[in-house]
């Protein structure tokens, strides 16, 4: 079957699929707050929160998620993302604690 090739901009769906949350992304709440504030005078600045490039060859479908961020983070404001980050740190601490506990246990088990 012959293959149809269209240049990028001719399909709105394909455009939307890319431009809304891929490339360089400023969180929605920042985007809104940027409007009308003078960054220089409020002493705020835009900084890089994270940077990823995907230069691997993937084959398995679904093994790589879409680049869009988790729903909890994209719902809007920074507080949501902060709470997720806090939860994240919390879970990591718990994980580290269980890891330590588990390392101790086998050692104890050796002397019945």
């Amino acid at each position: 079957m012959p293959v149809e090739r269209t240049t990028g901009g001719s399909s709105l769906i394909d455009v939307l699929d890319r431009v809304l949350d891929k490339g360089i992304v400023i969180d929605a709440w920042v985007r809104v707050s940027l409007v009308g504030i003078d960054l220089i005078t409020v002493e705020a600045r835009v900084v890089v929160a994270s940077i990823d490039t995907y230069l691997k060859y993937s084959e398995a479908v679904g093994s790589v998620g879409s680049v869009s961020k988790p729903a909890a983070l994209s719902t809007g404001d920074g507080r949501a993302s902060e709470s997720v980050l806090a939860e994240n740190a919390n879970l990591r601490a718990q994980l580290a604690a269980t890891g330590r506990a588990r390392r101790r246990r086998p050692a104890a088990a050796k002397t019945p």
């Binding site: 079957m1 012959p2 293959v3 149809e4 090739r5 269209t6 240049t7 990028g8 001719s10 399909s11 394909d14 890319r18 431009v19 891929k22 490339g23 360089i24 992304v25 400023i26 969180d27 920042v30 707050s33 940027l34 002493e43 705020a44 600045r45 835009v46 900084v47 890089v48 929160a49 994270s50 940077i51 990823d52 490039t53 995907y54 230069l55 680049v67 961020k69 920074g78």
Partner: peptide
């Protein structure tokens, strides 16, 4: 496309590398 008669290929581009770059920016004091 020639090999797989029963499949439809929708092929677009060239695009800027949207799917291969993810830089998140945030506002900081």
């Amino acid at each position: 496309g020639g090999k797989y008669d029963s499949l439809t290929f929708r092929y677009t581009g060239p695009w800027p590398p949207y799917n291969f770059v993810n830089i998140r920016l945030k506002l900081e004091r």
